[in-house]
Structures are given as C-alpha cells and as structure tokens.
Simulated scan of single mutants.
Amino acid sequence: MSKEDELSLVERLREKDHTNAMREVMIRSPLAHSRANELTTSDNATSLKHPKGTVPALANSLMVISYLNSKAPDAQTLAEISSTLHLTKSHCHSILRTLVYFEWLAFDDRNKTYKLLPSAISDLSSLFTSPLLETVRVCLSDFVDQLDLPCVLAQPLTDGSFVVIDTFRCRRYIDAFYTVGHRFPHNASAHMRALIAWSGKERIQKHLAEWKPKKYTDFTPMTRKQIEDELVATRKRGYALSIDELSDNLTAIAMPIFDRNGEVVYIASCSFLSREHDFNYQEISAKLRKAIDHIHLQSVATVPAEFRIVR
C-alpha cells in the first residue's frame, strides 16, 4: 500500500463514521525473521544440517511449528510444509501426527491441511504469567486508558530482533498497531536505541561494531555517527524516538523496562501516523515514563543511574 493509499484509507474511514468499515490500520513494517525462516530460506536450505549437539527430530519439529506460525491464519498441507522445510514427507508426516496427538496442531481431514491450535499456548503459559509481566500489563493498560493511545510490549531476542508479546489497544478512531508475534528487525530504530542507550559504553561499542546499516526509508540512519548521535539524544530526552525511519509516515516512541539484574527485558513503545499532528511527544513520554517507573518500583528493578534521572 502506497503512502497516498494509506492516507486516503484513513480519510475514508473518518468520513464513513456511520458505517461498519474497518476501524484499524495494521502497521506493515519490515519484519525480522525467525531462526526457522532464516534456515529454510538460506542458499543451503536444500542440504540443511542442524548444529552438532542438537536433536534433529526435535529441531525439525520446532521448525514446523515456527513455519506454521509464520503462515497463520492460513493452514498448510503436508506437501507445502515438507517442501518448504526440505523434509521427507514421511518424516514430516510423523512430526505432524505427533503434534496433532498432543493437540498443538489441528488437522482438517477434508482439505488435508494443518494449523496451530491455541492449546499450544497453554503449555507455554508460564511465559505469559510472570509476576513482572503482570505488573507491566497493569501499568501499560492504565497508560493506554489515560492517553487513548495504543501501546506494544516487545521482548529482545538473542538474535537481536524484538518480538511483540502483548498489545494494548485504545478507543482512538484510527488505531495503528502491531500484532502479537510480530518481529521487529535488530536495527529497528526506536527499539534498538531503547535497548542499548543505557547499557554502558562497552556494550554500546560492541553493538555498534556488529551493526550493519539497512535502508528502510529515506530517513533511516545509515552511518555509525548518526546512530551514536541518536543514542546521545535518546539518553538526553529519556526515550527513544523514531520518525519515518522504519516505515514511511510512522513515528515511534520507546522505553526500556529493566529487571532486577539491570538487564532490559522488555521494550514498551507507542506508534502513530507521523502526519497526525495532535500527538504531544512530551506528554506521551512523560506518561509512559511514569508507568515504567511504577513497574520498576513494583518489581524492585535495578535501573541504570542515568535512566533514573528525572528529565
């Protein structure tokens, strides 16, 4: 969808308030890829070998789950799954039957397709019910209620990307949002800055040494000097700000949430259309900072001294 089409859609929605037209704009930003996606789309995918020490059957099962998750809500056939993941049909069929038996997958006998079941989440429920996460949810829900602005909670992953683990919707007419499971790339401007800005000089230098520029828009920072300047600005203002850097006409404000060890465990962010001029950065950041300060207080988090400074 072009920038002009997106704006005209927003205008049409506002003009047709009396209809049942869609009330949300799904944000289409660049995606990071899961390990399964990276493995299966590599040049050597046809001769894929798992690292030494891994259990091939388990590794292949996890790749099947990751693949089906990436295709949701569309169901997939045995042929589609086995050919994409370069598994033999017999081996792939055994994996699928096992996952169906444990009710992680549903099999449609008529269409001969497989899809993930919500019951899979129940076996991973501890990931969604930690005391810290519950505190985060309460505080961010209150923040959204106060400003009527959607908020997204993402978790940093070991590959440098960020996965959305919860969303907090608002009543605002045009609700720009990401879905749970969306993965921001490692160089997503706001999230990257929120992650490393307060991590100390050594970590920052290590991150920058491994950083590779990728142009998403005409406003994407492409030099190390630009990134360093933005990190300084992030610490000075107390939050990460990205304007049209990851997606055209999209502004994002992000802040880190620390745990008891002083590590960034989550990134809270708000995104909105850049052409919406009624958003007040100072008000949004102040309210979000208040919510995050309360999270840190309730969870007895270890917060870097520079981040604790009241702006």
Rank of each mutant, 00 (worst) to 15 (best):
E80T: 06
S82L: 11
T84N: 06
L87Y: 02
T88M: 09
T88F: 05
K89N: 02
S90P: 00
H93D: 14
S94L: 14
S94Q: 13
I95N: 05
I95S: 02
L96P: 05
R97N: 15
T98Q: 15
L99A: 10
Y101G: 15
Y101K: 15
F102A: 10
F102M: 10
W104D: 02
L105Y: 10
L105H: 00
L105A: 00
A106P: 01
D108G: 04
R110Q: 04
R110H: 13
R110W: 04
R110A: 07
N111Y: 10
N111P: 01
N111L: 14
K112S: 10
T113F: 04
T113G: 03
T113V: 03
Y114F: 12
K115G: 01
L116V: 08
L116N: 11
L116Q: 04
L116K: 05
L117I: 05
L117W: 07
P118Y: 12
S119V: 04
A120N: 04
A120W: 03
S122H: 13
D123L: 09
L124K: 12
L124T: 06
L124Q: 13
S125A: 15
S125E: 13
L127V: 01
L127H: 11
T129E: 12
T129R: 13
S130L: 03
L133I: 12
E134G: 08
T135A: 15
T135C: 09
V136N: 04
R137C: 05
R137A: 04
R137N: 12
V138D: 14
C139I: 03
S141I: 00
F143M: 09
V144G: 00
D145A: 15
Q146I: 06
Q146R: 13
L147H: 03
L147P: 00
L147F: 08
D148Q: 10
D148A: 10
L149T: 05
L149I: 09
L149C: 07
P150D: 04
C151F: 09
C151D: 00
C151V: 08
L153I: 03
A154R: 10
Q155E: 08
P156F: 10
P156N: 02
P156S: 05
P156W: 08
P156D: 02
T158I: 15
D159L: 11
D159P: 06
G160K: 09
G160T: 03
G160I: 12
S161K: 11
S161D: 09
